[in-house]
């Protein structure tokens, strides 16, 4: 019985991974220039009058329903924009290289949500600064909350 269970786990787990990898590749494989240096100056930035920060939980990259609502409001602007820049950030806790990766996961999460809503993936640029560029340099819960973010800019 135990071995049978093991077999089931063994056979299901790769399937799950296979699917997940396939989907994410489908969604984003069209764009490998995500990390290219952005050629857009801040003067070209489109003012949407929307909050441009999406917040996250500690060590998490998933979007809350509030965040999803906020991103949805961006969709119309995003469809008309020339380029969209998503900048992922983390709070100071945890290690720097891991946070660099986590910031990227956060930005990608926002990117994928925009794509689902019909924004062309080719114009979305993603970058992570990890914990290197905090908004608030203090070491407390309030500061950390502000620093765990993705910044959205439209051009």
């Amino acid at each position: 019985m135990k071995t049978f269970n093991k077999i089931i786990i063994l056979s299901i787990f790769p399937l799950v991974i296979g699917c997940a990898t396939q989907v994410s590749d489908l969604v984003t494989s069209t764009n490998y220039s995500s990390a290219e240096s952005d050629k857009y100056e801040s003067v070209d930035k489109i003012d949407t009058n929307l909050d441009d920060l999406i917040y996250f939980e500690f060590d998490k990259a998933s979007l809350s329903s509030d965040s999803k609502d906020l991103i949805s409001e961006y969709v119309e602007f995003a469809k008309n924009a020339k380029a969209i820049r998503l900048e992922g950030h983390c709070d100071e806790r945890g290690t720097r290289e891991y946070n660099l990766a986590l910031g990227e996961k956060r930005a990608i999460e926002v990117k994928n949500y925009l794509i689902i809503k019909g924004v062309s993936s080719s114009k979305i640029k993603v970058i992570s600064y990890g914990e290197e560029k905090p908004i608030d340099i203090n070491s407390n819960e309030n500061a950390w909350k502000k620093n765990r973010r993705v910044e959205i800019s439209l051009f």
Binding site: T28, N31, Y32, A35, A101, E104, K105, A107, K111
Partner: peptide
Amino acid sequence: FVMSSSGNP
């Protein structure tokens, strides 16, 4: 080193 394509480091 670590390389990330499409958010997968």
